[in-house]
Design a protein around this nucleic acid. Structure first.
Length: 466
RNA sequence: GGCGGCAUAGCCAAGUGGUAAGGCACGGGUCUGCAAAACCCUUAUCCCCGGUUCGAGUCCGGGUGCCGCCUCCA
């Protein structure tokens, strides 16, 4: 049936049809870099990384662009407070972003454009909007004339009149209309700024994405994604700017992920109830955090708590245990099983279901369920007296496929043990042969203290780190 | 005030109108020298009230509760 996805623009599930066969142009709004990212910021990064991986797994060539906002009010303020210049602050947190998201198994985008490296395109974008009458200069600022853009509100499904009622009017308003938003902001003395036809200043927030999308991906792209809180005003404004200029549809599909909540409230920088990825991965394996995120449907809100992560940790361990057991069996046992075809076709059924679930608006919650079903099947197979290399490899391969799409590496534990530990394990094997269980148990306890857990299987003793 | 979302077992979480996936936790059992892991069994009148239908968690109407956007926010 192919991939179906929920499009915020139409509020419907639609079949995915790329602009160009076999290719996908995708843009994800990235962070403003003045702090470490919190787990709520991490969600879209993880979730759309998964979307990208899945599209690639399904054979699409994906061009994936995600920006860094590396100049804005908050950055300037924070930099000032720290006595650091803007450039060095943003460099620091861009590096931290890559470290944190890398730990979460996120692949880098093909291009990570920055505002400060896109100024000429932004200025010319604004100039052309002014030329077309969609923007006006006012005391050194430039604003977008929302009233002139007839589709304003189409993404957030709001009428321009209702929006106006809700809009707050600031004192000393330089705008023609409260809904107008700033494209270019007049610089204050001493602040970072660039020259422009309207004097020194810097870009407003929304214009950067419009300019970057156009620069790197073109007038119309396939997928534009971000957090739900960006629907209005950010994405609405992007559409206004871009479509006013190009008179073409900016993106065919708009995808928005749900929030991560704490105590049922949105996690956000302004509420101050956030947990930094930087900190949480000191307590939990980053793969656990990834699994936790991927375990829910991307549009559902998820509540964050240590209990939930602990639960995810146990679930992931179940998957890993089966995976390592299958590999252990593959290495240590003979190639003697029967009914290979029957097992292999069952494995394929689970893989098919995985694909079907991911096709259905990236329903990773159900895809994970399919993976757990495969795990169960694997455990049943491991109970067979005789197994074949073919079936075992098939299990391992399919588990790896699924894990790749979800962005989790399986069973990646250091293969090496130091000599002393190796010796102890061997000594215990001998002790058990001699039925010296007291000694065997003592060794097992000792290794446990060193976080190495032993499991005796019919194919021999297996160890793992915990 | 406008727009939108959600309410499913102890916890988390899926669910195309046909009598409720999956995970975690709990209890019982099997296997094991003992464990661990695994396997088997047990655990839900799907917020309330109406309606449509042969049949509704799933559609419609009305409640109740919670949340989000409308201001920087993923």
């Amino acid at each position: 049936m192919g991939i179906q996805l929920y499009n915020t623009l139409t509020r419907k599930i639609e079949p995915f049809k790329p602009l160009e066969k076999g290719k996908v142009k995708m843009y994800v709004c990235g962070p403003t870099v003045y702090n470490y990212i919190h787990i709520g910021n991490a969600r879209p990064v993880v979730v759309f990384d998964m979307v990208r991986r899945y599209l690639e797994y399904r054979g699409y060539e994906v061009q994936y662009v995600s920006n860094f906002t590396d100049v804005d009010d908050k950055i300037i303020k924070v930099a000032e407070g720290m006595g650091e210049d803007v450039k060095s602050l943003t460099e620091r947190f861009i590096k931290a972003f890559h470290e944190d998201t890398g730990a979460l198994g996120v692949k880098k985008a093909d291009i990570h454009p920055r505002v400060t490296e896109t100024i000429p395109e932004i200025v010319s974008f604004i100039e052309r909007l002014v030329d077309k009458g969609y923007a006006y200069e006012s005391e050194g600022d430039v604003y977008f004339r929302t009233k002139k853009f007839k589709d304003y509100g189409k993404l957030s499904q709001q009428s321009i009149d209702d929006l106006q009622l809700g809009a707050r009017i600031e004192v000393g308003e330089k705008k023609e209309n409260p809904l107008d938003f700033v494209l270019w902001k007049k610089g204050k003395p001493g602040e970072i700024s660039w020259e422009s036809p309207w004097g020194n200043g810097r870009p407003g927030w929304h214009i950067e994405c419009s300019a970057m999308v156009k620069k790197y991906l073109g007038d119309t792209i396939d997928i534009h994604a971000g957090g739900q809180d960006l629907v209005f005003p950010h994405h609405e404004n992007e559409i206004a700017q871009s479509e006013a200029l190009t008179e073409k549809k900016m993106a065919n599909y708009w995808l928005h992920n749900g929030y991560i909540n704490i105590n049922n409230e949105k996690m956000s920088k302004s509420l101050g109830n956030f947990v930094l990825v930087h900190d949480i991965i000191k307590q939990f394996d980053p793969k656990v955090v990834r699994f936790f995120i991927v375990n829910a449907h991307y549009r559902s809100p998820i509540n964050f708590s240590a209990e939930q992560l602990t639960s995810a940790e146990s679930g992931l361990e179940r998957i890993n245990t089966t995976y390592t057991n299958l590999q252990h069996r593959l290495k240590t046992s003979a190639d003697l099983g029967e009914d290979s075809e029957a097992w292999e076709s069952k494995i394929e059924e689970h893989h098919d279901r995985f694909i079907q679930e991911m096709d259905d608006d990236f329903n990773s919650a159900n895809a994970v369920a399919a993976m757990f079903d495969l795990v169960k099947l694997g455990n049943l197979y491991l109970m067979e007296k005789h197994t074949t290399k073919d079936v075992l490899s098939k299990f391992v391969g399919r588990m790896e496929n699924m894990a790749y799409v979800l962005g989790m590496e399986l069973g990646k534990q250091e293969a090496l043990l130091d000599e002393e530990v190796e010796k102890l394990i061997q000594e215990r094997i001998d002790a058990r042969k001699n039925r010296d269980f007291a000694r065997a148990d003592a060794i097992r306890d000792e290794l446990k203290e060193r976080n190495i857990v032993l499991e005796d299987t019919p194919q021999g003793t297996r160890w793992k780190r915990v």
